[in-house]
Structure formats: structure tokens, C-alpha cells
């Protein structure tokens, strides 16, 4: 009942070529999905998926390992793309990124504590598998609370302070992770290093189902605010005068980003640059209005992340590269290009 006017309202400010582009992104997303589930150390043809004549080993690889992994990659990519786009809108800063306000770092610190100290803190705990994500979410939540406390009194200037707090949080988290690295044993160090580089290797239904639910809810909460993010580009006072409750919007973006990023980081480690690169590509393709940018970034983020993960699996078979290496290798030059481009303006 409420969905119809909502969709209509979103589409009103999305022009026809943008709707067409979203369709193209959706197709690209589906192609990436099909390629990702059929290629790898075990190859499946798409036809085989609908055919019952499979060995049990194939079925197990496909349904228990490959598909959860691909779905996780898609959700993490969508989370990072969407939260990057909304944060760049909120901060009115094309360089904003989930990593920037310290949420990823907070989540990473939370998770690192569990990787290094977990076995001695919670020996044989029943919900062992959930401790890592929970710790990451707690870390992200702690950062949000800090941001909330530090930026509360700054009014319209708050956003600048939030970025500065983010820098401080990043520094603090890297100290924490540094200390943990120093005191860790060899095997813990290996886990920590691999996790900081990012990987979808550990995906299982048991772990990703709650993550899918949480991330989806958070996205459906955020995307309807796209019009308000557009108005915010006129400046906070102007947006307010156009009827936007700026404070509420601010917390909505921050909280939804923190949840999606916190959950993503806990399951896959720190995967850099996706939140920065994806919204820019989407803007270059079709425009800057958020009713197109937010869904576009989610779709492209998911598609690119699945492709990056596919690359990480097939480049050095039978071993695999951390997916964070691939996204950073693509993202870092892009980041530099972006900085030069902004300086020209």
C-alpha cells in the first residue's frame, strides 16, 4: 500500500535514460552472478544448475560453498556501494567512504580483538561463529555512538567534525590492531592478516542468512530517503527550508551505513575502495540524483564485488587471492585519478 506511491515518487525524479541504465546494471549484475556461480576451481555450466544429474560432490560445492560465497560477495558489494553513495551525499564530499568516518576501522578493531584474543576469552562458547560478526558490529556501533556524542552540539557544522572524528577513530583503531598484531601467535597473525585483506572464503548459510536480513532491511530503510539527499546538496539550511529534517536524515544515513558496513566487514574483512569507486562510476554513467545513484550503486557494487571475487578465485588456481587486494589494486589508481580531477575543478 505504501510501496506504490513510494516507487512513483522515486521514479518521478529519475529520467527515462536512468531507468534504462538501472536495467542494464541489473542485467550486468545477473550475468556476474551466473558467471560467479559457474566458474571456479569446479566449473558448472548454467544448464547443469537446472539439471538433476549431478554428483553429490558437485551439489555440495555449489550449494554449500559457492552460492553462499557469491551471495555474500553481492551483499557486501551492495552494502559498500550504497553506503559510499549515501555518505558522499551526506558529507557533500566525493571522497567520503565508509572507511572515512571510521566505521570500517571500528568494526575491524572489534573483529581483530576476537581473532587474536577470542580463543582465550570465550573457550568453547556455543555461539562461537557469531562472536566475530557481533564484535565487529559492536565496534561499528561504538564508533557511531562516538560520532553521535562528538557531533551533537556542532549543529550545521557537524559534518566537518564528524570527518575529523573519523580520522581520529581510524588512527585509534590502527593502534589497536597494531598492538593485537604484535601480541598474536603465528596462526592468529595469519588469520588476522588474511582477514584484514578481505576474503569471502568463510561464507556459509549459517553465517550469511542473518547478515542478508540485516543488510536488506537497512537498505530498504535508506533508499526512500534519496530525494532528501538530493535536497541536502543545496546546503543544510536550504534542505531544512525545503522541509527536510536534516538531523534525522543525518542519523539515518550514518546508522544504516554503520549497520551494513559493520556486518560486511565482520564477514569479509576490510575491502577498500568499493564505496569510493562505485558511486563515482554510477554518476559518470548516468547522473548525480540519488534516486538513481543509490539503487545504481547497490547494483554495480554487487556486480563488481562478485566479479572481483571471481577473479580472486580463478587468477592463481588452485590457491586464491584476498579479494581486498584486487579491489585495492583497481581502486587506488582510481582514487588518485579522482583527486587530480577534483583539483582541476
Amino acid at each position: 500500500m505504501r510501496v506504490k506511491p513510494l516507487v512513483k515518487n522515486l521514479l518521478r525524479f529519475t529520467n527515462s535514460s536512468q531507468i534504462y541504465l538501472l536495467g542494464v546494471l541489473l542485467i550486468a549484475f545477473l550475468l556476474a552472478f551466473l558467471a560467479s556461480i559457474s566458474l571456479g576451481s569446479f566449473n558448472f555450466s548454467v544448464f547443469e544448475l537446472f539439471n538433476s544429474s549431478k554428483t553429490s560432490l558437485h551439489t555440495t560445492v555449489l550449494y554449500e560453498i559457492r552460492i553462499p560465497r557469491v551471495i555474500l560477495a553481492a551483499f557486501v558489494g551492495a552494502s559498500l556501494g550504497l553506503s559510499g553513495a549515501s555518505l558522499q551525499g551526506l558529507f557533500r564530499n566525493p571522497l567520503a567512504d565508509p572507511g572515512l568516518i571510521g566505521v570500517s576501522a571500528g568494526a575491524a578493531l572489534g573483529a581483530s580483538i576476537i581473532i587474536v584474543l577470542g580463543s582465550s576469552l570465550f573457550p568453547g562458547f556455543i555461539f562461537g561463529a557469531f562472536i566475530l560478526p557481533m564484535a565487529a558490529i559492536c565496534g561499528a556501533a561504538l564508533v557511531i555512538s562516538l560520532l553521535y556524542v562528538f557531533t551533537r552540539g556542532f549543529g550545521y557544522q557537524g559534518i566537518t567534525y564528524m570527518l575529523l572524528v573519523g580520522i581520529a577513530v581510524n588512527a585509534f583503531a590502527s593502534v589497536g590492531i597494531g598492538i593485537l598484531t604484535y601480541i598474536s601467535t603465528d596462526s592468529e597473525l595469519r588469520g588476522l592478516t588474511f582477514w584484514t585483506m578481505g576474503s569471502f572464503g568463510g561464507a556459509s548459510w549459517y553465517l550469511i542468512l542473518p547478515a542478508i536480513v540485516v543488510i536488506s532491511l537497512s537498505m530498504f530503510w535508506m533508499i526512500p530517503s534519496s530525494r532528501k539527499l538530493d535536497l541536502l546538496q543545496l546546503g543544510e539550511p536550504e534542505a531544512y527550508r525545503l522541509g527536510v529534517d536534516v538531523k534525522k536524515l543525518k542519523y539515518k544515513v550514518i546508522i544504516s551505513s554503520a549497520i551494513t558496513v559493520g556486518v560486511s566487514v565482520s564477514l569479509s574483512g576490510m575491502i577498500g575502495f568499493v564505496g569510493l569507486v562505485v558511486p563515482h562510476l554510477v554518476r559518470l554513467l548516468g547522473g548525480v540524483n540519488h534516486s538513481y545513484l543509490l539503487p545504481g550503486s547497490a547494483l554495480l557494487g554487487a556486480g563488481l564485488m562478485m566479479s572481483a571475487d571471481l577473479l580472486s578465485r580463478i587468477l592463481v588456481q588452485p590457491a586464491e587471492l584476498p579479494v581486498g587486494l584486487i579491489t585495492s589494486a583497481i581502486g587506488a589508481p582510481f582514487f588518485l585519478w579522482l583527486i587530480f580531477r577534483i583539483r582541476k575543478i
Partner: peptide, 11 residues
Amino acid sequence: MSQSQQIVYDF
């Protein structure tokens, strides 16, 4: 209508 701020993205 007031003295307006810079708009970052290419609207």
C-alpha cells in the same frame, strides 16, 4: 532564497 552554498555534484 539566501546566499547559496557551492553545489558539489554536477546537477
